[in-house]
Simulated assay, not measured.
Amino acid sequence: MRILVTGAAGFAGSHFVRSLLAGAYRGWEGARVTALDTRPVPERHARVEAVRGDVGDPFLLRDLLPGHDAVVHFADTTRADTAELVRTNVLGTHTLLDAIRGSGVERTVVVSTADVYGPPVADDAPRTEEHPLNPVTPYATSRAAADLVARSAWHTHGVDLSVTRSAVCYGPRQQPDRPLPRLVTALLEDVRPRPYDGAAVREWLHVDDHCRAVHLVLNRGRAGETYHVGGEPVAPAALAERLRALTGTRAGGHDGAVPPRAVRAVLDDGRIREELGWAPTVPFERGLADTVDWYRDHPGWWTAARRAREAATAAA
């Protein structure tokens, strides 16, 4: 069995690769992994072939894809100008799916995000997979466009694929400029962090549960279908208070009370639960504590990652 993972140097992609190599996914024990990313892939293993390259390079993909049984497409960019977001997230997805046609790849999963539904709303009703897309930021718009490209590849060209849309993903090794690591590392440095997203109640999903859902969809998901991967709803005030306790500081990212009708961004994940038997296994309280412990124990990792990000931004 051979699988291509795009975005394999990223947060979720690298976790998926590590889990594959550890034999965590039934039916994929011993699988060989091609890890594709524009950045160096951290995993070194006899069953990993690290390929430094762009998912939007059709010539690379033409040579790379034959011989693979499956593709999991994690690659995307979140912090860039609109042109780069379109090039990587939209055109990159199109180029990959176009190259898959006729390559012999039997199954593909495109990993997306709940951001495609737009801002949280003052409504308790969870969003289903049929909820209208309403992106308002350049990133969310590029991801929504990529999802439509994927649907078209299945409907028009018969590419056997499914799409996953997940809640906010967190866990160890996430880049320190992302929302939760930014809060955690600021508190560990005893610096008052910027607030996270006002009073919106969001779902938080541990990266291990996220990747396990992707694997289930890869193995047993229906072609042309979208699957929500939900998490645990948490209000920002509750998150800030928990982080204060875990880091032993009184600095915090949210000081106001949550309104009685706080806006919510909650997914209905009944489809993946009922069809594939998925359910989260990492409670948020435990996952958050483990995540804080990891950042506390690895200051060299996140300070180096922060410096590298700042240097890349300065050079852009």
Results as ranks from 00 to 15, higher is better:
residue 203 E to W: 13
residue 281 T to P: 01
residue 71 V to G: 00
residue 108 T to F: 11
residue 230 G to V: 13
residue 288 L to A: 01
residue 276 L to H: 10
residue 82 T to V: 14
residue 312 A to L: 13
residue 259 P to V: 02
residue 44 R to Y: 04
residue 117 Y to M: 03
residue 60 L to H: 05
residue 114 A to R: 14
residue 183 L to D: 01
residue 21 L to C: 03
residue 83 A to M: 07
residue 274 E to W: 00
residue 67 G to L: 09
residue 222 R to G: 12
residue 190 D to W: 04
residue 282 V to Y: 00
residue 316 A to M: 13
residue 36 L to S: 07
residue 269 D to W: 04
residue 78 T to L: 10
residue 282 V to R: 08
residue 37 D to L: 03
residue 18 R to S: 14
residue 49 E to W: 00
residue 31 A to S: 14
residue 278 W to K: 07
residue 159 V to I: 08
residue 103 S to C: 11
residue 246 L to Y: 04
residue 284 F to I: 01
residue 280 P to I: 00
residue 244 R to N: 05
residue 285 E to N: 07
residue 84 E to Q: 13
residue 84 E to F: 00
residue 307 R to C: 11
residue 197 D to W: 14
residue 259 P to G: 06
residue 208 D to Q: 14
residue 122 A to K: 06
residue 262 A to N: 01
residue 265 A to I: 02
residue 193 P to M: 11
residue 199 A to T: 15
residue 75 A to L: 07
residue 92 G to T: 05
residue 88 T to Y: 06
residue 169 C to M: 15
residue 313 T to M: 14
residue 98 D to P: 00
residue 214 V to D: 10
residue 113 T to P: 06
residue 154 W to Y: 07
residue 167 A to S: 13
residue 296 R to F: 05
residue 75 A to W: 07
residue 58 P to G: 02
residue 226 T to R: 13
residue 297 D to P: 09
residue 142 S to R: 01
residue 11 F to Q: 00
residue 184 V to I: 15
residue 265 A to Y: 09
residue 98 D to G: 05
residue 222 R to D: 13
residue 156 T to P: 03
residue 301 W to L: 00
residue 216 L to H: 08
residue 292 V to F: 02
residue 302 W to V: 12
residue 29 E to Y: 08
residue 23 G to N: 04
residue 273 R to M: 01
residue 307 R to E: 15
residue 97 L to A: 03
